[in-house]
Design a protein around this nucleic acid. Structure first.
Length: 217
DNA sequence: TAGGCCATCTGGTCCT
DNA sequence: AGGACCAGATGGCCTA
């Protein structure tokens, strides 16, 4: 999992493509070695992990006395195992159990809210959405979002520099790379021009930083 | 069968 | 005291 934390732009694209593949979409860029065990595999006909349906969640979370038998069993096991923990104290067992169930329900609700937020994030990320595509994992969602934000920031910066060039009336000494590669996917290998070309493209920008080497142009 | 991912329970800590 | 947040443990499901 550590490799995902330092996901490069190429790996990001590979990740996106991995999820897009099942839907027959190609987001470009070669599949990198970091594309990732378990992250790129499409779900062929499989269902999502067995989470309670959204419509049943609320009722489930709000009626703490109507928990599943599993939770009852777990509670009994722990009760037998030893003295109560923080929730124990001097409470009567019934009181203690009621409090525990209430805490469990609250925690469940909290996690559902967190998952809803993650679903919202997935909905705006550039990867293939669809019933035949496996949902991004939580960690993949966060890493994809992070890299997407970074790339959007870089694209925005590139556009700002371009506008600055045009305002100075110098035109472009060299053709800009295709928007889809340079602006949208600035990390993509071969997508952006090497530094000397960048210099030639906008000679009137002495203070701008090269996005490839972080040196002044 | 191992490994990845997930939901849930649980106890601890911090905050209001 | 009660709620929010966190991390560890556990067990289930799915895939390679």
């Amino acid at each position: 999992m550590a490799e995902l934390r330092s996901l490069s732009g190429d790996a990001y694209l590979a990740l996106s493509r991995g999820y897009a593949a099942a839907a027959g979409l190609a987001l470009g860029a070669a599949l990198g070695p970091e594309a990732g065990r378990g992250y790129g595999a499409p779900d062929l006909g499989g269902d999502l992990p067995a989470a309670p349906a959204p419509c049943t969640r609320v009722a489930e979370a709000e009626s703490s006395d109507e928990q599943s038998g599993d939770e009852d069993d777990a509670f009994e096991r722990r009760r037998r195992r030893g003295p109560g923990g923080a929730a124990g104290g001097r409470r009567r067992p019934r009181e203690q159990r009621s409090l525990r169930l209430s805490i469990n329900a609250r925690e469940r609700r909290r996690m559902h809210d967190l998952n809803d937020a993650l679903d919202g994030l997935r909905a705006v990320l550039p990867y293939a959405h669809g019933p035949s595509v496996r949902k991004l994992s939580k960690i993949a969602t966060l890493l994809l979002a992070r890299n997407h934000i970074l790339m959007q920031a870089q694209a925005l910066d590139a556009m700002r520099r371009l506008v600055a060039c045009l305002h100075q009336g110098q035109g472009l000494a060299a053709p800009l790379p295709p928007f889809s590669q340079a602006a949208v996917y600035p990390f993509s290998a071969g997508g952006a021009l090497p530094c000397p070309d960048q210099r030639a493209a906008c000679p009137g920008q002495p203070s701008a930083l090269c996005e490839h080497c972080n040196e002044k142009l």
